[in-house]
Amino acid sequence: MKRIIPLFVATLTSFFVLAGLIWPVSLGGYLNIVLDWAIIVGAMALLVAIAHLFLAQWRKIARGNRSSFYSLVFVIVFLLSLGGGLVMGVDDPEYRLWISSIQKPLEVSLLGLAAVVMAGAGVQFYRTRGWSPLTVAFGVSALVFLVIDLGFLQVLNSPPVNAIIKTLQMLPLIGARGLLIGMSFGALIVALKALTGEGVGND
């Protein structure tokens, strides 16, 4: 029964959304109501997730583990952000500047670190993976596209070179389209499974 009720609700909702999309004039207004419900449920789920995260960090602090310092930082920053938003309001320019001045440098630094790590991995890549068709193809293709992006070859303004570059730049498109086709099939199958309830409850 625990599985049947959610499955029934999900199937019914999905069929209703499909019907609303097919007959928007008749069912469009009701579809908006259903979407509002979904938004409310999603927002509540987000609140529950935030509360769970906060409680988990709080329990770590109570246990006094070594990593509890980071939990303490998290809890303090969380409370400050929450309090600031409640008191000053989300639309307050000062509050926005405060949050933006913290979040933007942090995320950019994270990307910078990722670049450094990837650069190091470029050196160690062949030592750890060895020579194989896959690794060689990866290295060669990375080199080719890095050189093309440098723009030095385009300066030559040679028609044959430009044709070669154009051809090479089409290769990622081929791969991307293959990926998208695969993803579409996967999404279709998952949607059909969700509609029919197949695989629900199977661990």
């Binding site: 650069a119 190091g120 470029g122 160690q124 890095l146």
Partner: peptide
């Protein structure tokens, strides 16, 4: 941007060379 790309190219080549040297 170009300097960043050059660094990445050199690192990849360095990886080639180091692996070949090990072998």
């Amino acid at each position: 941007y170009q300097v960043g790309l050059l660094i990445m190219i050199m690192l990849l080549l360095l990886g080639f060379v180091v692996k070949a040297d090990d072998d």
